[in-house]
Computed example of a mutant assay.
Amino acid sequence: MAEPARASADGYADALAFEAPYLIEKLVKDHVAESVDHAELLFREIKRYFVVTECDAGVTWSMYSLEVDAVWHQFVLFTRQYIDYCRAHFRGYIQHAPSNAPKIRLAAVREPSTFEMFAQRYAQLFDESLPDVWYDDRNVTLARRILFSRADDLTLRDGDDGMVELLDSHGEPIFAVDPVARAALEFMADVRHFFVRELPGDLDDDQRIALVSVMVENRILALAA
């Protein structure tokens, strides 16, 4: 199958310039964004994501940011405005399909995306690197809500090397930490949905953030919208 022609972002200036004050207000009110500026940044990124997917329609583009995906979800809730936006600026309604959605049969005839592909195409289209909102592990703060990415039962075990291991429901280790973080890891496995600041034990705030960031980077934990 021949590769589809790859467009540029030049023809999407109006789509990128589109403003939605009603959406920005809701993002701040519902604590999806910390401020108006933060909401504007996130909205810019979902519009850029749309442009990437439109410019490379032969690729099944995954959504790589929970923060940006939350904005997409909120935008869809303004049904009429969202439909009008899609029809005015793109080829039609853009179906909201987060990265954890079931794969549809159509995806089989398209090239699956990777994060590296997305970052490269983004840089080509917008002449700048991906901002930090696309890296979930860079957005861990003490006030951030976190949840486990997996639903199976998790247990702890003292490893032979002195580390504390987190085991899945099959008894296989999926993560290991220094014993100083045992209380925090045990709390996570038990509570499963928490704020970073709530982690117990002898960790300082920087260590709490670092521990969660590594676990988010490894897809063990996820940012809660």
Rank of each mutant, 00 (worst) to 15 (best):
F148R: 15
A9V: 11
D132Y: 04
Y64N: 09
T79H: 07
P98N: 10
P102W: 11
I209G: 03
A183E: 11
A123I: 11
E217A: 15
V191Q: 08
E3P: 03
P131Q: 10
A15P: 01
E34G: 06
L41N: 09
A222N: 04
A176K: 14
D190G: 05
M63V: 13
K26M: 03
R44I: 12
V36N: 05
I104K: 15
A39Q: 13
F50D: 06
A210C: 04
R110E: 02
S113E: 10
M188A: 13
R219K: 12
Y93Q: 10
F126E: 04
E67R: 15
M117T: 07
D168H: 11
N218K: 15
H73T: 08
G159L: 13
K26Y: 01
F43G: 05
R87D: 00
D136V: 09
L167A: 03
L77F: 00
V164R: 15
R91F: 01
E172F: 08
W72T: 09
P21W: 02
I83P: 01
A88Q: 12
L77Y: 00
V212S: 14
D136G: 03
A13I: 06
L199N: 02
A57D: 02
K26T: 06
H89Q: 07
R110A: 04
R121N: 07
M1T: 05
S8I: 11
G171F: 07
H73D: 02
P131K: 12
L106T: 15
K26R: 14
L23G: 01
E165N: 10
S8L: 06
A88N: 11
F175D: 02
R87Y: 00
M188N: 08
A33F: 09
L16V: 14
V164H: 12
D178P: 05
E172H: 11
V191I: 14
D178E: 12
E45P: 09
R44N: 13
L66H: 02
I174K: 09
M188D: 02
P4Q: 03
A222Q: 09
N139I: 10
M163K: 14
F194Y: 02
H96K: 14
A107P: 01
I83S: 05
A57T: 13
L147A: 06
A123F: 04
D30S: 08
L130M: 11
P102H: 13
D84W: 08
V191R: 14
A13W: 00
A17Q: 10
M163G: 05
V196E: 00
